[in-house]
Amino acid sequence: MSTKLNVLEHVMVPDHKIMSEEEVGTLFSTYKITSEHLPKIYHDEPAVKIIGAKAGDVVRTIRTSHTAGIAESYRLVVKRPKK
């Protein structure tokens, strides 16, 4: 990968942030879900590697939405399955 490329700075990549355990707890209780209900993101993704998230963490992405302006979404970091 190139030295000057910072994936997070690209216009198509939203901000990724690791959520603390507390935040994850409130997220699960407000929506009454468990981690398996979340969309997934692979642990070896460029953005995940930059923020240093490990498998099992929940990542918050702050998207610029066409409809709402700003929208938050959440993804669970999982290991990429072997082919």
């Binding site: 198509m12 939203p14 460029p46």
Partner: peptide, 23 residues
Amino acid sequence: TRRTRTNNINEISQVLGIEAARN
């Protein structure tokens, strides 16, 4: 490297990640 884009979605998902692929 902030604005350059391609119409190959698979390539975007590999280089920039799944969120970029969604966009």
